Computed example of a mutant assay.
Amino acid sequence: MGQEEDIPPFDPQGAVYVYAAMADHIAARIAAGDLRPGTRLLGERALAEEYGVSIGTARRAVEVLRRRGLVVTLAAKGTYVSDGDQSQSPTDEQRDAEA
Rank of each mutant, 00 (worst) to 15 (best):
L74V: 14
M22D: 06
Y17E: 13
T91E: 05
A20C: 03
P37S: 09
R68I: 00
E93R: 12
A23Q: 02
A61R: 01
A32T: 11
Y51G: 09
V81E: 04
G43L: 00
A75E: 09
R45T: 11
G78W: 01
R40C: 12
I55L: 04
S54W: 01
H25E: 05
A21T: 08
Q86S: 12
F10R: 14
R29H: 05
P37T: 10
L42I: 00
R95F: 03
A20G: 07
A48S: 04
L42S: 14
A48T: 02
I26Y: 00
A21K: 06
L74K: 09
R67Q: 15
Y17F: 09
V64F: 06
H25W: 12
A75F: 08
Y80M: 04
A48F: 02
D83I: 06
V64T: 11
Y51Q: 07
R36K: 15
L42W: 04
D92T: 12
D92A: 14
M22W: 06
H25F: 08
T91I: 01
T39G: 06
G69N: 10
S54K: 07
G78P: 03
P12M: 12
R68Q: 15
V62M: 02
M22T: 04
S54R: 10
V62L: 02
A76I: 04
P37G: 13
G69C: 11
P8L: 01
A99V: 10
R66I: 06
D11M: 13
D85T: 07
V53A: 00
G69D: 10
E5G: 07
F10S: 11
P90M: 02
R68Y: 07
Y80G: 05
A61Y: 03
G33D: 05
V53R: 00
T79W: 05
L42E: 13
A58D: 01
Q13V: 12
K77D: 08
R68N: 09
Q13I: 03
H25C: 11
T57K: 00
E44V: 06
T79F: 07
L42V: 04
A31Q: 14
Y80T: 01
G78Y: 01
Y19S: 08
R40G: 12
H25R: 15
Y17A: 13
T79R: 08
L47Y: 00
L70N: 15
R66S: 12
